[in-house]
């Protein structure tokens, strides 16, 4: 565990906390893509199956359970909470799951380390996480007024990705056996997806304006 990895995890946790806070405090999920949140829940389920058969550290297990619980909590609010679900931008959040899930599943079946159920699901979760933010980014482009909490949520997720890349560079330099092309390439693609968002986020932050993405 290095500092970059810890910062990455903390930004990830913070992003989820900001989102849950927004939903609970404002009783609204306006601007949040349920598709992205459900994809993240699926990512965590597929990746953290190893909770049942492998143990790395108390920290890892605790974080895995936290990510799973919070992901399902967010989905539950957006789908079933009487007040919150009315604020969901259903008509705008139209990204099709199949366009993301099918290619990731196919790729995981072909490009993996071992052709076993858990390994394929783990690889699938890596690929799917890389693109799961897309429905959220599309929704934000369609939304005229992006509130600050939503913008900060996505910015924190981007920061998490950025620190994970620093973590990989650090591990590549310091650990003999750290060659993980599947994780790296997916991670770089995932982080690159945020580049455009960050560009406008920085512009609006400098101008002290509300975030607006060009159509």
């Amino acid at each position: 565990m290095n500092l970059f990895r810890l910062c990455g995890d903390m930004f990830h946790l913070l992003s989820i906390m900001v989102l849950l806070l927004k939903i609970r405090a404002t009783r609204s999920c306006r601007g949040i893509s349920l598709k992205t949140q459900e994809l993240y829940a699926l990512v965590f389920v597929c990746r953290y199956l190893d909770l049942f058969y492998s143990f790395i550290s108390v920290y890892n297990s605790f974080m895995k359970v936290t990510f799973l619980a919070t992901a399902f909590s967010i989905v539950r609010y957006m789908r079933y909470d009487k007040v919150v679900k009315q604020t969901y931008d259903r008509e705008q959040d139209t990204f099709r799951y199949v366009f993301l899930i099918a290619p990731c599943l196919l790729l995981a079946l072909v490009l993996n380390h071992r052709f076993t159920l858990t390994e394929v699901l783990w690889t699938f979760s890596i690929y799917l996480e890389a693109v799961a933010i897309l429905p959220q980014l599309v929704l934000m482009q369609r939304t005229q007024n992006i509130d600050n909490l939503t913008a900060n949520y996505v910015a924190l997720l981007g920061a998490y990705r950025g620190f994970y890349i620093l973590n990989w560079i650090y591990r590549f330099a310091t650990e003999r056996h750290y060659r993980q092309w599947i994780v790296w390439i997916s991670g770089v693609i995932q982080t690159a997806l945020y580049a455009d968002f960050f560009f406008y986020y920085a512009l609006c932050w400098k101008a002290n304006k509300r975030l607006q993405l060009p159509a």
């Binding site: 995890d9 990830h12 190893d50 380390h113 071992r114 056996h177 060659r179 993980q180 092309w181």
Partner: peptide, 10 residues
């Protein structure tokens, strides 16, 4: 050469 990833990250 890609090694099987040590699954110690989140």
């Amino acid at each position: 050469d890609d090694e099987e990833a040590p699954k110690d990250e989140l």
